[in-house]
Simulated scan of single mutants.
Amino acid sequence: MPSFHSYRRGLKSSIAAALLTLLALNSQAQQPAQLRVQPLTLPRELASPDNQFSGLFVSQKRLFLLSESRLLDPDKPEGKLYTISLPDLDRKLTDTAYVLPYRKYHLAGLELLKDKITAAGQVYEGLEAMLVDDSMVYFAVETATASPNCYLLQGQLQDSAVVMNPDFLVSLAKPTAADGSRIYNAGFEALLQNKRSLTALFEYNSFPAGNFAYPFDKLRAGSISPGKPVGIQPLPFRITDVTATRKNRFTALNYFFRGDDDQAYRPAQTDPNTALVKPGDAYRSYCRLIELRYRGNTYHWQPLAEFPAEYMTYNWEGIAAYKRGYFVINDKYTPQKPYRSTLLFVQPARR
């Protein structure tokens, strides 16, 4: 018969082994899920870096692709978006040789709205987000860092153009740091529809004093009225686009660029998220999908899945939920030249 001491040693060993097993299982559970990636080759015009795509949206059995529309060419300024039908994208997912057909829409009247923004003393930098509501299309305008306001615009979708409403120019004041400074290169990068309201999400959501989403109630005749800001759980890095998935649930692109100009987006060294963007002595670019849930008048978030290493340094700017995955697109920046716009269909891998 074993002695009491040998029994106790055996019990300790068993408990220790069980704890190690639990720790190992917990460690595996903490590992971020990976995205399964399927690239979708774009036609030359759509892959051109001149588009600098900044948003995606699925509506009316079409995928809408928003060009940043910076209007830099004085001889031929052009605001535009494109659409690809979802049946054509379904075919592309199974037939990689299929060449995607597309339609182009001119944003008629965008130049006049840019002039109004300039006259107000702001510096227009481009369109950063889009929301399609039946025939109405809403856009978020980003301005230069020094400009205190961003803007919402609205247009009517027609056969070959989106006719911009010249009287719809809604200013959005940028939230500032405690010392009154503005966050570098930050605007309202995402628009979402929650019930009947349009909500704008600021790119930066790490203000110690509180972070907010900005809803607008959509009224008749296409007008909107600002509502009371609602809270967002503090969130590291950037939000660069968002897409609705289920009632009160959304998926967002959560992106970090390692450049020195973006130091405002670096989490504190004591923040666990630092390990994601600084695994060693230097920062790295990083991108993941997060889930936003709206409850208790606040948007809460949790990690969903991260991009594979070879896609981490793409500047992902657009996301649209489709079936059990998402279309995502970068603006133009890739790990190396020649730059191009890249469309992916991604799905979180099941564990």
Rank of each mutant, 00 (worst) to 15 (best):
M1L: 11
Y7Q: 11
R8T: 12
L11I: 11
K12I: 15
S14T: 06
I15G: 03
I15F: 07
A17M: 03
A18I: 14
L20V: 10
T21F: 13
T21M: 10
L25E: 02
N26Q: 14
Q30V: 06
Q31Y: 04
Q31G: 04
P32A: 15
L35R: 03
R36A: 08
Q38S: 12
L40Q: 01
L40I: 11
E45F: 15
L56D: 01
F57V: 02
V58W: 02
Q60R: 06
Q60F: 01
Q60H: 04
K61V: 01
K61H: 04
F64N: 07
F64C: 10
L66Y: 03
P74D: 14
P74F: 14
K76Y: 10
P77T: 15
E78R: 08
I84G: 06
L89V: 12
K92A: 10
A97Q: 07
V99L: 04
Y102W: 08
Y102V: 02
Y105I: 09
L107M: 05
L113K: 08
K116L: 14
A119W: 13
A120K: 07
G121R: 09
E125I: 04
G126V: 02
V137P: 01
V141R: 02
T143C: 07
T143M: 04
T145L: 02
N149F: 14
N149A: 15
Y151R: 01
L153C: 05
Q154V: 03
G155V: 03
G155K: 00
G155P: 00
V162R: 07
M164K: 11
N165I: 12
N165Y: 11
P166T: 13
D167F: 07
K174Y: 13
A177L: 09
N185H: 12
G187R: 04
G187M: 06
F188T: 01
A190E: 02
Q193Y: 01
N194P: 00
K195D: 06
S197H: 13
L198D: 04
F202T: 08
N205G: 12
A209K: 01
N211R: 11
P215D: 06
D217V: 15
K218E: 03
K218Q: 09
R220G: 05
A221K: 11
A221I: 13
G222W: 03
S223L: 02
S225V: 01
P226D: 09
G231P: 00
I232G: 05
P234V: 13
I239S: 08
V242A: 08
A244Y: 01
T245H: 09
T245C: 12
R246P: 00
R246A: 15
L253R: 07
N254R: 05
F257M: 06
G259F: 05
Q263R: 07
A264H: 03
P272F: 09
T274M: 08
A275K: 01
L276Y: 10
K278Y: 07
G280S: 14
D281N: 11
Y286Q: 09
R288A: 12
R295Y: 04
G296Q: 09
T298I: 13
T298P: 00
Y299C: 06
Y299V: 11
W301S: 08
A305E: 00
A309T: 14
Y311L: 15
M312D: 04
I319K: 07
I319M: 02
Y322I: 14
V328D: 01
I329R: 05
I329E: 00
N330S: 10
D331E: 02
T334G: 09
Q336M: 13
K337E: 04
Y339D: 09
R340W: 02
R340S: 06
R350Q: 10
R351F: 13
R351W: 10
